[in-house]
Design a protein around this nucleic acid. Sequence first.
DNA 1: CTCCCCATTGCACACGTTTGCTTAAGCCAC
DNA 2: GTGGCTTAAGCAAACGTGTGCAATGGGGAG
Lengths: 368, 368
Amino acid sequence: MFEKDRGKAGGVMQTGGGNRAPRQPLRQPSIKDIARLARVSHPTVSRALQNSPLVNAQTAAKIRKIADEAGYRASAVARGLVTRRTRTIGLVVTTVDDPFAGEVTCGIEQAANDHGYAVFLASSSADPERERKVVQALAERRVDGIIVTSSRVGALYLPLLEELNVPIVLVNDQYPGEFVHSVMIENVEGARAAVEHLIGLGHRRIAYVGDRLGYQSDAERLAGYKDALKRGGIEFRAALVKEGNGRPEAAIEAVDELLALPAPPTAICCYNDMTALGALRAIRARGLRVPEDVSVTGFDDLFFAAYLQPPLTTVRQPMRRMGQLAMENLLKLMSGEDSVAQSRVEAELIVRASTGRAKTGSEESRHG
Amino acid sequence: MFEKDRGKAGGVMQTGGGNRAPRQPLRQPSIKDIARLARVSHPTVSRALQNSPLVNAQTAAKIRKIADEAGYRASAVARGLVTRRTRTIGLVVTTVDDPFAGEVTCGIEQAANDHGYAVFLASSSADPERERKVVQALAERRVDGIIVTSSRVGALYLPLLEELNVPIVLVNDQYPGEFVHSVMIENVEGARAAVEHLIGLGHRRIAYVGDRLGYQSDAERLAGYKDALKRGGIEFRAALVKEGNGRPEAAIEAVDELLALPAPPTAICCYNDMTALGALRAIRARGLRVPEDVSVTGFDDLFFAAYLQPPLTTVRQPMRRMGQLAMENLLKLMSGEDSVAQSRVEAELIVRASTGRAKTGSEESRHG
DNA sequence: CTCCCCATTGCACACGTTTGCTTAAGCCAC
DNA sequence: GTGGCTTAAGCAAACGTGTGCAATGGGGAG
């Protein structure tokens, strides 16, 4: 009836047939086809499928049955055209293979799906040119909202995004804008807790390995670090702050420099777990032990943190939850609610075995 | 400017006072608006924007300039309605936060983007009910093609997918179907290489920790394991095969049972790196050392493998490349090419420090 | 019996593109 | 001049859905 049975007939048409239609997706049954079968008008079908009270219950049931048998699936694209809402959001992420992004994405996707939204995944790879194209594409696709996670170039293209007049939610970043809201973690408190933990263990020379790419979260964690030092009556020393790029390789170099200092740190607070991964390696490469010689803390509590040797002391971010929260906030924004507050979630220090008591003065002298 | 005198009246343009409209996304300029401004008909605008030779060069330039100034962005949804192609694909993944899936996704997204395709991310979470809904959603959204990675339930819902008459590419799985093609890694050869490496180190009691969820890749790797044993003249013993679920927690349990055997293995070949993560922990929990007491191999070469202590010997999958390949194959399928072969990529054994020589007989007696 | 109301359904149009076909010039050759 | 060709532009229809409004019919109240 809908010319549904083609192709299959040939059976073994593999290469011989040759005359296969050029993958012109064969027409799906439309609302009008169903209307014809049910002997009603197509608006009636439309209403019946939306459970509109305007159509007689029996008629509706009959129509639904017919639609079901015909394998009818409403076209979201046609619907989107007339309703001007696509029930689609865009998720912009710098890179998909970052475990943090993965977890957040997971939470977003789940929440979106639960509410009937589909999500376009777009990665910018931190390439400005690509970023522009990605945003352009999302605009053309008429997404109802956008979530951007860990934008490292926020200020650069967020104005562009805002120009689309589409609600935006940022994860782990913020930006002053009319439609723009954020979900953030207590970076300052989290980092402070980690450093205070180290101070409590007797450490005095504590280093911080950050991220040179200018994430806002890095600035905040550094602030937390400084704050803890101040409270602990320890002088801040710029020489103990190095920058990586959020990946293990860069951290190795940074930590290596730290350990080469005349008075090397006895503890290292890392911007995130990936950085800590590199730190651990750099420390071992020098023949030092964790935590006996140097203590290390991370941030995120990625899945592998508990499985490292030694298991990593870190600050947990409820990443899934943050994604979910971002989506929920976006839903509110999209429904016109304008009062969505900035959401901040709590950071939780997870103490494992990569942190230990600082060496006593005498032992410490080994460094000269 | 583009008020188009319909109901909306009042022209709630731009930053109008405080009375923000209920997030009814304010109308984007349409092709007709541009036509009016350029004093031409809208089909002419359409053609001009597509660089059609049918329109005068000067007129086209003028139109493009006007469109640009007006911030015009073509509506992909309207275009999709008439062309019946959305330039959109669906990516179905069991879970987004799996690092393997993340890497593959990365490659897919990149390739898709390069060709002007957008990708809908959908996770099934291995929940059949959800799976059905996800597929339904993709169908309604009229995606041009679908990629499914590591389907654990292939046979269950692939027929459903195929019924959509949309080209499908599977990653790390295969299924006999007309529109269905695959990208796979040489699982058998990869696992065999790992086990032969172990045999070469003198190991004789080698265990395999698999995945009870029934992935095809697991079956193949197990086959490679058996194959290597046979070639090495070592008898296969079912007691040395245990099943995890591809996550560290389950592997701990499995490996613990292996180590409790009267004659425990001296080497463990793991289904993937996540499994290896658990294996390492279980081994240490018993006070044994890697690789001195037990050697361990993984599969995937996820980013953390090189950073473990000891660095993990594993079989590398070119995950990004596989994603890219999947997308390229899908593109061919979508353009009607029917000759896309099954793609198989090579696995590469990466020897690191988690594998070492088997203990000699005398040392080995510690267990007995 | 008349009037009005309610329940149900159909009509017509709109959403923003693309595209086949027609039309309007302009030009050249005969 | 007439006819045909080329170039440029417009007309109209289509894609598949949603929705305001009109039309139809039946039933109850007066």
